[in-house]
Amino acid sequence: MTIAEWCVFGTLLLYLLTIASVKWAAYGRFDNAKPRDPAFYQDPLRARALGAHQNGIEAFPFFAVAVLLAEFRLGPQRLIDELAILFVIVRIAYVFTYLGNRPTLRSILWSLGFAINIAIFFMPAFKGYLPV
C-alpha cells in the first residue's frame, strides 16, 4: 500500500475517532441504545464534535476517490503521497478548530483541504507539467 492509501485509512479513522472520543468521555451519559439522541448533543462540545464527525464523513469520499484516481492514472506517487499527508494534517487541525469553536480558522482549513483534494484529483491531467 502507498502512503496516500494509508492516509485514506487515516482519514476514515479520524472521523470515527472524532465522535467516538466524545462518546467515550461522556461515559455513563451516552446511551448506546439511542446513539442519535438529540439530548446528548445539547452540550456545545458534543454538538461541535458531531459537526466535525459529519463533515469528516462528507469530506472522505472525495479524498478517497481523488487519491485512487490519481494513482490509477499514474500521477507522480511522491507528490500524491505528500499531498495526502498534508490533507490528513489539515483535517486534524480542522477537527481541533471545530472542537475549539474557531469558525474562521476552521473555514480556512476546510478550504485548504478542498484545494488539496482538487490538486490530487487533477494531478493526472497535469503530470506532464509537474517538476517531479
Score class of each variant (00 low, 15 high):
P44F: 06
L109H: 09
L68T: 12
Q42D: 09
L14I: 04
Q42L: 12
A59Y: 13
F9Q: 00
T104R: 14
L130M: 15
M1S: 14
A66F: 05
A26G: 15
P103E: 08
R91Y: 10
F126V: 14
A64P: 11
M1R: 06
V22L: 02
I80M: 03
W6R: 14
R48V: 04
G100D: 10
L83T: 09
A70F: 09
I57N: 09
A125H: 15
L74V: 15
P103R: 10
A20L: 14
A59Q: 04
V65C: 09
R106K: 14
F114V: 11
L112T: 11
N101V: 09
A66G: 10
L68Q: 14
A84S: 15
Y129P: 00
G10D: 05
A84C: 01
R29M: 08
N32A: 13
S21G: 09
A64W: 02
P131A: 11
L109V: 02
D43K: 11
E58N: 04
E71F: 07
Y129G: 02
N55Y: 09
R102C: 10
D31W: 05
M1Y: 15
G75A: 15
D43I: 11
G75H: 01
V88S: 02
I85W: 12
A20R: 13
P61D: 05
S111Y: 12
V90K: 02
R73N: 08
A39S: 14
F9T: 13
L13V: 14
S21E: 13
I118E: 00
Y15G: 00
F126A: 07
L14M: 11
L105T: 15
M123F: 11
N117Y: 10
D37R: 05
Y41K: 06
L14F: 07
F126H: 06
V65Q: 00
V95L: 07
Y94M: 07
A25F: 11
Y98F: 10
A119K: 03
G10I: 01
P44R: 10
F121E: 02
L109T: 06
N101D: 11
A66I: 07
F62A: 13
P38W: 01
A26K: 15
A115L: 08
R106I: 02
Q42A: 14
G28Y: 03
K34N: 12
L12A: 11
R91A: 05
L86A: 14
G51D: 09
L69P: 01
T2L: 02
R102W: 09
N101L: 03
K34E: 05
A4P: 04
N117Q: 05
T2G: 02
T97P: 11
T11E: 06
V88P: 02
A49R: 13
M1G: 04
A119D: 00
F62R: 04
F30G: 00
I85R: 05
G113Y: 02
